[in-house]
Amino acid sequence: MSAIEIPTVTATTLPAGARLIDVREPDEWAAGHAPGAAHLPMMQIPDRAAEVPRDGDVVVVCRSGARSAQVVSYLLANGWGNVHNLDGGMRGWAAAGQPMVADDDRQAQVI
Rank of each mutant, 00 (worst) to 15 (best):
A38I: 09
A69I: 05
W80P: 04
S73D: 13
D57N: 12
D27R: 13
A34Q: 08
A66F: 10
A50Q: 12
V83I: 12
S73W: 02
T10V: 04
E5P: 00
A102I: 07
G92P: 05
A16H: 01
E51P: 08
E25N: 08
R63L: 12
D55L: 05
T13F: 00
I4G: 00
E5M: 08
L86F: 03
I45L: 15
I21P: 02
R48Y: 07
L75G: 07
V58M: 02
R91C: 06
D55Y: 02
D47H: 14
M90E: 08
M1V: 15
I111V: 15
V52G: 14
D55F: 06
M42D: 09
A3E: 11
E51M: 10
P35A: 10
P35H: 03
A94Y: 00
A3H: 01
V59I: 10
D57C: 04
A50F: 12
Q44T: 15
D47A: 15
M42G: 12
A49R: 12
R24A: 06
M100D: 07
A94F: 03
D27A: 15
M1N: 13
I111N: 14
P41E: 13
V71I: 11
M42R: 15
S73Q: 14
G97S: 10
P26T: 09
Q109Y: 06
L14R: 01
D22K: 02
M1H: 13
G36C: 14
I6A: 00
V61Q: 03
P99Q: 04
D22G: 07
E5G: 05
A69C: 07
N82T: 09
A38S: 13
V58G: 01
A108V: 07
G97C: 11
R106N: 14
M42N: 09
I111T: 15
Q44A: 15
G97P: 07
P99D: 06
G97T: 13
G56Y: 08
H39R: 11
V71L: 04
E25V: 11
Y74W: 15
A30Y: 01
P99N: 04
M42W: 12
G32L: 03
V61R: 02
A30S: 14
A50V: 14
Q107W: 00
D87F: 02
N82H: 04
P53E: 09
S73V: 00
V61T: 14
G81R: 11
P7Q: 07
L76Q: 03
I111C: 09
P15H: 00
A96S: 13
Q44G: 10
W93R: 05
E5N: 10
S68Q: 03
R63D: 10
A77K: 06
A94D: 08
G56A: 13
D27P: 11
G56P: 11
G79F: 06
V58C: 03
D27I: 12
N85Y: 01
P53S: 11
S2Q: 12
T12C: 02
P15L: 00
Q107D: 13
E51L: 13
A37C: 06
R24C: 05
Q107N: 02
D104M: 10
A108G: 05
W80N: 03
T10Q: 01
G79C: 09
T10C: 04
A31V: 12
W80H: 14
D47G: 15
D55P: 05
N78L: 05
L40T: 12
M1T: 15
Y74S: 04
G88N: 09
D104R: 09
H33T: 09
